[in-house]
């Protein structure tokens, strides 16, 4: 490696294309967006960079701030459920027999290879008022209603079945987001558990700890790094979700990405859209920075 760095032509040959690619397709467009965010619309198609902070100020207007708050809230709830559901799943895979592991992991990865749009439309079919979930609920209701009628309690569970509304509600959007982001949570949790020396768990049992206390006092703390990674890797994309709130929210549960999209399309307010995008990016940076600082402090604490 040392000698590579010393040979400039070789280094340039390897690093050059990547650098160019990043520059042309990432840094320059990002720079343009950054310029726009300080600009104003002067005509329908022209934007002038006037270095105004007006676009950033508008983010804090109640209407947008509320949307931002909802975005953070839904992303946080999504993250919470992904961890709570993902942790046991990861544990099952990590403790499964060696020959089953690749297949179980494949099952987790499989949805990734299906287009998100198609998966979200499938969710529409499942969560709709005539959908599978409500079909199942209705079947259960009929069962209960029939039972109630038998003992002379007609109408105990309502006159007729009222389908649960998922579409166009925060509940529906969260269900969709959890479904989409679950693999993001499971994989880092699985890798943390896979790396964990099994003898820690055995030592806990040997010392008199039952399954539950071994889980909470040993397994969870020793996989906390995986939990943090899983939380961040779930929270950040959830924060920028667009398709799920768009389709499952039916325009009634907008998240910030939906607002950003509207600025670039219907509202034709590119400067404001740019400011919103960058603000989202800054929030992401802050989360990653906090994580890095905590990591550094932990490493320092260990060395002291």
């Amino acid at each position: 490696m040392e000698s590579w760095r010393r040979s400039l032509p070789a280094f340039a040959a390897f690093a050059g294309p990547t650098t160019l690619w990043l520059l042309v397709f990432f840094l320059i467009p990002l720079g343009i967006i950054w310029m726009y965010s300080f600009g104003e619309n002067v005509s329908l198609t022209e934007i002038e960079t006037t270095w105004t902070f007006e676009n950033y100020r508008r983010i804090f207007e109640p209407e947008i701030a509320t949307l931002f708050w909802r975005t953070v809230k839904l992303a946080a709830i999504t993250t919470f459920f992904c961890l709570v559901i993902g942790y046991p799943v990861a544990l099952v895979i990590a403790t499964a027999e060696q020959k089953w592991k690749p297949w179980l992991l494949l099952l987790i990865m499989l949805p990734f290879w299906t287009n998100l749009l198609i998966r979200t439309y499938a969710m529409l079919n499942i969560l709709g008022t005539q959908g599978r979930v409500n079909g199942l609920l209705e079947w259960g209701w009929q069962f209960l209603d029939g039972g109630a009628a038998l003992v002379g309690l007609d109408g105990l569970f309502g006159e007729r079945f009222v389908p649960v509304r998922f579409l166009g509600t925060e509940l529906g959007v969260v269900i969709g987001l959890v479904y989409v982001h679950l693999p993001f949570a499971i994989l880092p949790l699985y890798s943390a558990m896979e790396r964990l020396d099994r003898s820690y768990l055995e030592a806990s049992m040997d010392l008199g700890g039952g399954q539950i206390r071994t889980f909470f006092l040993i397994l969870v703390p020793l996989t906390s790094a995986g939990l943090v990674t899983a939380a961040i890797i779930t929270f950040i994309p959830a924060l920028g979700s667009f398709l799920t709130p768009d389709l499952l929210g039916r325009g009634q549960v907008d998240m910030i990405a939906n607002v950003i999209e509207r600025q670039f399309k219907k509202a034709n307010d590119w400067p404001f859209g740019s400011a919103l995008s960058l603000f989202l990016l800054y929030v992401t940076f802050i989360i990653l920075a906090i994580r890095a600082i905590v990591d550094m402090q932990n490493a320092k604490g260990r060395r002291a």
């Binding site: 003898s199 030592a203 806990s204 040997d206 010392l207 039952g210 020793l222």
Partner: peptide, 30 residues
């Protein structure tokens, strides 16, 4: 956890997130 025997593991398995004292107290707390 219900046997009157205790083990010293090959890798020691000393809990890394607990102080020496807490490690030793763990079994008594259990």
């Amino acid at each position: 956890n219900r046997r009157p025997v205790n083990m010293v593991f090959q890798s020691y398995a000393v809990f890394p997130h607990m102080s020496v004292e807490k490690n030793v107290a763990y079994g008594l707390k259990m």
